[in-house]
Structure formats: structure tokens, C-alpha cells
Amino acid sequence: MPRVWEVPVHDSTRVRDVRVAAGAAARHAGLVEERIAAAELVATELATNLLKHAGGGWILLDLVGPPVPAYGDERTARVQIMAVDHGPGMPDTAAALRDGYSTAASLGAGLGTCLRTADDFGLHSTPGRGTVALARIAPRPNPGTTGPHPVPLPVRAGGINIPLAGAEFSGDAWACVRTADRVTLMLADGLGHGPLAARASSAAVETVRCAPHLPPADLLRRLNGALRDTRGAAVAVAQLDVTAGQLHFAGVGNAGARLRRGDTWQGLVSHPGIVGAHLPTRLPQQQQTWTDDCLLVLHSDGLPSRWSPGPAAHDPSPLDPAVIAASIVRDASSPARPVRDDTAVVVLSPCPPDPSS
């Protein structure tokens, strides 16, 4: 089930809580001691930065798959550490990553340490709105493992999953799975909250991992059978055929979806119903052209229906999709009330250009 560790950071006593949570998340992911220590170090640095520069914020730890899907590695868990604040923001994020740069009379090595230690690192800041910092700690590859490496796809996925009121489990879950040149992205919102809702969304994730080759409408029918002994869920499924440049979408319930092409946003329509209980007889699929300037957002109803994409979703720099997702949630919430429900947001975006090419 989607276990999430959420730690509000408003005074120095919570820095230790963040370090403990990071160690627990890393052990839950099965990381070795070296990588556990790395997760604890990065989480501590990000929490300390929240207090020094933003007056506080919150740390969210989650277990996620790799941002660029490959064959069968979606089950390889890595620890995602997200720091989010509503502080003054950074005027120059590139300078903030350089060792020695500080606006708080400190050594100025915190973000640089995170950048060097983490397997993935992302940062976005908007003056007057706040900052999102992301780090992922992955298992070290097994040197004895050999085999063919699939050609990387030019897209990547990332998201954020926040349980209501700091609960241990979120009723929302998402998955991204690759088969050949197709990427299937699914978001499930289990009815209600807590472990029973998480059981429904977790069953949806497992079903998608077993049958990602199915078109979205057929996958929803498969999910309907798999979720019959659960509470059921609202589910959105998007499948991108990279070679054909076509995105197919189908959804049931109040799971939302928006597609950006250039500067224009378009809502993708889900149909009334509950997967696992009341599936519509007809499940038409929408088809959209996918180009290099596209960006797809799937979200649960914890995000207000009139949410604004915000600056991160239009940033010309190659932001990590999870950073975009977290920025969307931050801009739709407030420091006093971060989320109003279990809230998951997942983003599919083009990969940045290869600097070596």
C-alpha cells in the first residue's frame, strides 16, 4: 500500500523527526546502510534549509519507481524526498546550488550536498510563492546483473502523494509502466481514506503492472474486475505510443486530467462511475497528438477542480515532473491547510535534451 511519511517542519525539533522518517522510508525500500545514510543526510539538509530560508514547510517521503520507465524496473523502489514551502522563494536557484552561496550566514553547502548525494535532484522556486526541492535515493545497481538495456524513451513521469491529515497511508496511488514503445500512466483514488482506500488503489497499481499492454478502456475493464472485492476507486489511465506520437486516455470517476500543448491546456474527460462497482457500459477513449511541447497532469479530487498550473508547469527549463506536481499542489493550498483530502498529482513530460548530443 502507498506508505507516506509526512513531517511538518516549523522548529528545529522536527529536523530529527525528518531524519528518523527518512531512515524508516529507506529501510522500507530495502536500501543498504550506505543508501540509508544518504537518505538521512539529504532529508536533514532539506529540513534545515526549510527553517533557515523559508520559515518552515514540510517534508514528504514516498517510495516511487524510476522517473524514466524501463522494462520491469517499476518495482525497484527508491526514496523520494520532497521539501515544500510557501516562503519568499529564491531569486537564483543556480547560485543556490553552488557551494559557498548563502543568504543566511551559513556555509552554503546544503543544497550542493543534496545534489551530489542524490541519484535525482530537482529544484524550482518562485519569488513570493515558495520553493520545491526534490531528491531521490536509489538502490545501488547489482554489479553481477547483466542483460540488455532498452532504448530510453523520451518521456519521464513523476508525482506527489499526500495523505489527509498526515495519515500513514494515502488512499491515492499511481503507476507508470513501459511496454515496448508505449508508456501507461495510471492514477487511482480509492474511495474514502485510510488503509481500505489504500487497498483499492494498491490493487489498481498491481493490475496495471500485470497488464500495461491493454488500451486504457480495456485496462479499466480489467481493473473493474480486480477491484470488486475492494471499496472501488476513481481511475484515470493515459497511454502514450511514443513512436506514433499518440496519447490515448480514458477515465472513470472524479479523477482529473489536463493536457498542455504549448501554452494551451485542455481537459480530458472522465466518465461517471466507480471502478470495481459501477463501470459505465461505454468507455470511449480520447486520442490526442503528443508532441515535444506536451505535458500531461493526472490528479485525484484532493486537488481543487479550478487549480492553476502555475509557473513550474510552464518553466522552459527541464524540470523533474515530480517537482512540477509538487508545485501544483503547493500553489493550490496554503501553509495552514496543505491539502483537503488524500491528494495525488502525477506528471508525464518530455525528457530534457541529452547534453552529450
Rank of each mutant, 00 (worst) to 15 (best):
P2A: 14
R3T: 13
V4D: 10
V4E: 13
V7A: 09
H10Q: 13
D11R: 14
R14H: 12
A26E: 05
A26S: 04
H28E: 13
A29M: 05
G30L: 09
L31Y: 08
E33N: 11
E33V: 12
A38K: 06
A38D: 15
L41V: 08
E45I: 00
A47K: 02
T48H: 06
T48Y: 03
L50H: 10
H53N: 14
H53T: 15
P66R: 09
P69D: 04
A70I: 02
E74C: 01
T76F: 04
R78A: 11
Q80F: 09
M82R: 12
A83E: 10
V84Q: 11
G87Y: 09
G89S: 05
P91D: 14
D99A: 13
T103I: 13
S106R: 14
G108D: 03
A109V: 12
G110D: 03
L111F: 10
T113S: 02
T113Q: 09
T113R: 12
A118P: 01
D119I: 00
L123N: 04
T126Q: 14
G128M: 02
A133Q: 04
I137H: 03
A138H: 03
G144M: 11
T145M: 13
T145Y: 12
G147N: 01
P148M: 05
P152R: 10
P152S: 09
P154L: 08
R156C: 13
A157L: 15
G158S: 03
P163H: 03
L164P: 01
L164I: 08
E168Y: 09
D172G: 03
W174R: 01
C176G: 08
C176L: 09
L191N: 08
G194A: 06
L196H: 12
A198R: 07
R199F: 10
R199P: 00
A200S: 15
S201W: 06
V205L: 11
C210K: 15
L214V: 01
P215F: 07
P216K: 04
L220C: 09
R222V: 02
G225I: 00
G225Q: 12
A226R: 13
D229V: 06
T230S: 06
T230N: 06
V235Y: 10
V237T: 06
Q239P: 02
L240G: 04
V242K: 10
Q246P: 00
G253A: 11
N254L: 14
L259D: 05
R260V: 02
T264V: 14
W265H: 03
W265A: 07
V269W: 11
G273L: 07
H278E: 14
H278K: 11
L279D: 08
Q285W: 05
Q286C: 01
T289M: 12
D292P: 05
L296E: 07
L296A: 03
H299V: 01
S300C: 08
S300T: 15
S300D: 04
P304N: 04
S305P: 10
W307V: 01
P309S: 04
D315I: 00
S317I: 07
S317T: 13
P318C: 05
D320P: 01
A322N: 01
A326T: 08
S327G: 06
R330M: 01
A332Y: 03
A332I: 01
S333E: 00
V339S: 00
R340Y: 06
D342L: 00
T343W: 00
T343F: 00
L348F: 00
S349V: 06
S349A: 15
P353Q: 11
D354I: 06
P355Q: 05
